[in-house]
Deep mutational scan, measured.
Amino acid sequence: QNEKLANELKSLLDELNVNELATGSLNTYYKRTIKISGQKAMYALKSKDFKKMSEAKYQLQKIYNEIDEA
């Protein structure tokens, strides 16, 4: 289960640069939040902690959705 979550989180991290570029014309909230979420996700992957990875995955998905809707 950890392996599956780690792969999903890696996949979301692969999209980080594209989504970060998409924040160029948006409010600074999005820029700041996506950077923080990305850092948390990288830390969670290194720690291999299921709870941290779950939270990081949720945060990344949430900010990606917010950027898409903005």
Rank of each mutant, 00 (worst) to 15 (best):
Q1H: 10
Q1A: 12
Q1M: 12
N2E: 10
N2S: 11
N2H: 11
N2W: 15
E3L: 09
E3Y: 07
E3K: 07
E3N: 08
K4Y: 07
K4Q: 12
K4F: 08
K4N: 07
K4M: 10
L5T: 03
L5F: 02
L5V: 05
A6Y: 15
A6Q: 09
A6D: 02
N7C: 12
N7V: 08
N7K: 12
N7D: 10
N7T: 11
E8H: 03
E8N: 02
E8S: 05
L9S: 00
L9V: 03
L9Q: 00
K10C: 05
K10R: 12
K10G: 03
K10M: 09
K10N: 04
S11M: 13
S11W: 11
S11A: 13
S11Y: 07
S11H: 11
L12P: 00
L12Q: 01
L12D: 00
L12C: 03
L12V: 01
L13N: 01
L13Q: 00
L13G: 00
L13W: 03
L13H: 01
L13Y: 03
D14R: 12
D14M: 12
D14L: 11
D14F: 08
D14I: 07
D14W: 09
E15P: 02
E15A: 12
E15F: 14
E15M: 15
E15T: 07
L16Q: 02
L16W: 08
L16G: 01
L16M: 07
L16P: 00
L16T: 02
L16I: 06
N17E: 13
N17V: 13
N17G: 11
N17L: 14
N17F: 14
N17T: 13
V18L: 13
V18D: 09
V18A: 13
V18T: 11
N19D: 04
N19A: 10
N19R: 15
N19H: 15
E20W: 15
E20A: 13
E20N: 09
E20Q: 11
E20Y: 14
E20T: 15
E20S: 10
E20C: 14
E20L: 15
E20H: 09
E20M: 15
L21K: 10
L21A: 10
L21H: 08
L21T: 06
L21F: 08
L21W: 09
A22M: 14
A22V: 09
T23F: 08
T23V: 08
T23W: 10
G24T: 13
G24S: 13
G24I: 13
G24N: 13
S25V: 09
S25Q: 11
L26Q: 03
L26R: 03
L26N: 04
L26W: 05
L26M: 08
N27R: 08
N27P: 14
N27D: 13
N27C: 15
N27E: 08
T28D: 15
T28G: 13
T28W: 14
T28Y: 13
T28F: 13
T28A: 14
Y29I: 04
Y29T: 03
Y29D: 04
Y29L: 04
Y30F: 11
Y30H: 04
Y30T: 03
Y30G: 02
Y30E: 03
Y30W: 09
K31L: 08
K31I: 08
K31T: 05
K31C: 09
R32Y: 13
R32G: 03
R32V: 13
R32T: 12
T33V: 13
I34E: 01
I34D: 00
K35L: 11
K35R: 10
K35W: 12
K35V: 08
K35G: 04
I36R: 08
I36K: 08
I36V: 07
I36F: 06
I36P: 00
I36M: 09
I36N: 05
S37R: 08
S37V: 15
S37F: 15
G38H: 10
G38W: 15
G38P: 00
Q39N: 06
Q39G: 04
Q39V: 10
Q39W: 10
K40G: 03
K40D: 05
K40R: 11
K40C: 10
K40A: 08
A41P: 00
A41L: 02
A41Q: 00
A41D: 01
M42S: 04
M42L: 13
M42I: 11
M42D: 04
M42K: 12
Y43S: 13
Y43Q: 15
Y43F: 11
Y43A: 15
Y43C: 13
A44M: 01
A44C: 02
A44R: 00
A44L: 01
L45K: 01
L45A: 02
L45G: 01
L45F: 06
L45S: 01
K46I: 12
K46G: 05
K46D: 08
S47Q: 06
S47Y: 06
S47W: 05
S47T: 13
K48W: 05
K48I: 02
K48S: 05
D49R: 02
D49F: 02
D49M: 03
D49H: 03
D49G: 02
F50D: 04
F50E: 06
F50L: 06
F50Q: 06
F50A: 07
F50R: 05
K51F: 10
K51G: 08
K51Q: 12
K51E: 11
K51S: 09
K51N: 10
K51V: 09
K52E: 13
K52D: 04
K52I: 08
K52C: 10
K52F: 05
M53F: 02
M53D: 00
M53R: 00
M53C: 02
M53N: 02
S54L: 15
S54C: 12
S54R: 11
S54H: 08
S54Q: 13
E55I: 11
E55K: 07
E55C: 10
E55D: 08
E55P: 00
A56C: 02
A56I: 03
A56H: 01
A56W: 03
A56V: 03
A56Q: 02
K57D: 01
K57S: 04
K57T: 04
K57A: 08
K57G: 02
K57R: 07
K57E: 02
Y58R: 12
Y58P: 00
Y58N: 10
Y58D: 12
Y58A: 13
Y58M: 11
Y58T: 10
Y58C: 10
Y58F: 11
Q59H: 07
Q59D: 07
Q59L: 14
Q59K: 05
Q59N: 08
L60S: 00
L60V: 02
L60I: 04
L60Q: 00
L60Y: 01
L60M: 03
Q61E: 11
Q61M: 11
Q61L: 12
Q61A: 06
Q61C: 08
Q61K: 07
K62Q: 07
K62G: 04
K62N: 04
K62R: 08
K62P: 00
K62W: 06
K62A: 08
K62L: 09
I63C: 02
I63M: 03
I63A: 03
I63S: 01
I63D: 00
I63E: 00
Y64E: 02
Y64D: 00
Y64N: 02
Y64G: 02
Y64K: 11
N65M: 13
N65K: 14
E66N: 04
I67N: 02
I67H: 02
I67W: 03
D68L: 15
D68N: 14
D68F: 15
D68G: 12
D68T: 14
E69Q: 13
E69T: 09
E69R: 14
E69M: 13
E69V: 12
A70V: 07
A70S: 06
A70F: 06
A70G: 04
A70C: 10
A70Q: 07
A70I: 08
